[in-house]
């Protein structure tokens, strides 16, 4: 009986994780190395990967900055009432609960060409939806809780004693943050960044709705994979998917390493 359970667990693991991964690899190399090169060398593939890279970099930077600030204000701010704090705290988790597609739809409704704000921006020549800014906003929406949720527990655990000690020793808030708070939260921040990168690398739903998936304009790696599959170009889709998978695997390894560092600290 016990053997049966062990066997079943391994079977599930194999079917769910290993089999698809090996299928992607074999399928990507179905045309040989040259085939993979051709799939990735297509102009739309190059553009899509560049697009994804740009989104990852910008979103990670913005999310790190605002995520740390949000966590600091939610934990430390004395000028926020307890009720407002707990309300904000639960709203932070909204992107976890809402489907990314609906997240994307909300952005389209709010900032699309038919909306008041979107119409105004369009008038000034600045396009949000079906353009790069909208894709950044959509990815930010999806990744926002990741940094906040990593940093907040650390801030709560260390308390504000050390920060108060720094203030009695003459240090103002920026110096206190740099010398006292930052060294204690930095591994949590790096972990949050890795999670953000992984999530923005693989984001599909929200970006698909907001971008309109226009080839060579607003197409990302994931939406390109989707389109290649639609066009029965499975080998090309596998090639792009393999690039994403390799990146994600690398991130997982980094995450394991950071986890160990975090525990040491």
């Amino acid at each position: 009986m016990r053997r049966l359970w062990i066997g079943l667990t391994y079977a599930v693991f194999l079917i769910l994780l290993i089999a698809p991964l090996s299928k992607i690899i074999t399928s990507a190399f179905s045309g040989g190395l040259a085939g993979l090169g051709r799939a990735l060398g297509r102009p739309e593939a190059m553009h899509a990967l560049m697009m994804t890279g740009a989104i990852v970099v910008i979103v990670t930077l913005l999310n790190t900055l605002f995520g740390i600030m949000m966590a600091l204000y939610l934990v430390r701010a004395t000028w926020l009432g307890g009720k407002i704090k707990s309300l904000l705290n639960s709203i932070v988790d909204l992107p976890y609960a809402v489907s990314p597609v609906i997240g994307g739809l909300m952005i389209v409704l709010l900032l699309g060409p038919d909306s008041i704000i979107g119409g105004f921006l369009e008038g000034t020549g600045f396009r949000v939806v079906y353009a790069f800014p909208g894709m950044i906003i959509a990815t930010l929406f999806v990744t926002f809780p990741l940094m906040v949720r990593e940093v907040m527990p650390v801030l709560q655990e260390i308390g504000n004693d050390q920060e108060q000690a720094a203030s009695t020793l003459g240090a103002y808030s920026w110096l206190t943050f740099r010398k006292v708070t930052w060294p204690m939260i930095r591994w949590a921040v790096v972990y949050g960044m890795v999670l953000t990168i992984a999530r923005s690398l693989g984001e599909f739903g929200a970006v698909l709705v907001v971008s309109g998936n226009i080839m060579n304009r607003t197409q990302t790696a994931t939406t390109l994979v989707y389109q290649d599959v639609e066009n029965f170009n499975v080998a090309a889709a596998s090639g792009v998917a393999l690039v994403l998978a390799v990146f994600s695997a690398g991130l997982l390894l980094i995450m394991e390493w950071i986890k160990k560092r975090k525990e040491v600290h």
Binding site: Q164, A165, A166, P183, M184, H265
Partner: peptide, 14 residues
Amino acid sequence: GIGFVFQNYALFKH
């Protein structure tokens, strides 16, 4: 211009 010694010392851990 004060020095403060906290109950749990609040030393900078790192």
